[in-house]
């Protein structure tokens, strides 16, 4: 059946090869260009691997997005980030992200199941399955850390508010109230759920989640 190499067949194969090479080179270029500007640090869903591992492991299927009972997880697209002036890099495009100011993670409080639903839904292990117990959440969830801007926080400026302290799921551990209900963050206990940022009555928010840095590790 295998016939001789006709001119037609030769040209077809040549074209095919050229197509493959150019197509992939183009895609590669796109990815390369994008990763150059990939600065947007963002809050990942609970149990996420470190950013570089996460970007390599996540297949952008959106199962965690659908599983989230609070709909706080959204795919990182240009439109999704535009409101907060965040642009996804090429490798980050379509990955799940949380914008706590819009909607924060409520750690699946009151939902069925014994695991955080997004981690349970993840097919690749990019989100490590995490139990809903306080201990497991403290150990396995590190989305970011709350940081208070004392120049604008009401409690630091002659009023007494405490909204963020009462919103915190680890009240007294991660976030405790000082004099005049001033929020005091304990970075080692804060999981970065963002409920404080969401509840902040000041605009712009006086307490914000700073996503964990790229080279973050449990030890630090």
């Amino acid at each position: 059946m295998e016939s001789k190499l006709t001119r037609r067949r030769f040209l077809t194969r040549l074209g095919t090869g050229a197509f493959t090479v150019t197509g992939l080179a183009g895609t590669g270029l796109l990815a390369g260009l994008g990763s150059a500007g990939e600065a947007a640090a963002c809050v990942r869903p609970p149990g996420a691997l470190l950013e570089d591992d996460f970007l390599a492991t996540c297949i952008r299927c959106g199962r965690c997005t659908d599983a989230c009972p609070n709909r706080c997880i959204t795919p990182f697209t240009k439109e999704a980030g535009s409101e907060l002036a965040l642009t996804p890099g090429a490798r980050q495009f379509g990955t799940p992200v949380i914008f706590p100011r819009r909607k924060a993670c409520m750690l699946c409080n009151g939902e069925p199941g014994d695991k955080l639903l997004c981690t349970d839904a993840c097919p690749t292990g990019a989100l490590i399955p995490t139990l809903k117990t306080p201990e497991a959440i403290q150990e396995g969830v590190h989305m970011g850390t709350a940081v208070v801007d004392t120049t604008i926080c009401y409690s630091f400026n002659g009023a007494s508010c405490g909204a963020c302290v009462r919103a915190c799921p680890f009240e007294g551990e991660a976030l405790s109230a000082g004099l005049w209900e001033r929020p005091i963050v304990d970075p080692s206990a804060c999981v970065g759920c963002g409920l404080c940022e969401r509840s902040c009555v000041h605009y712009p928010q006086a307490i914000r989640i700073v996503p964990r840095p790229r080279d973050w590790s449990v030890a630090s």
């Binding site: 590669g28 990815a31 970007l55």
Partner: peptide
Amino acid sequence: YGMLAAGLLLTFVVAAPVLGYI
């Protein structure tokens, strides 16, 4: 098969899935 191999190679190099976008 060329696309598959080259795509997986590219995935390996940039450490992010690329074939899923096309």
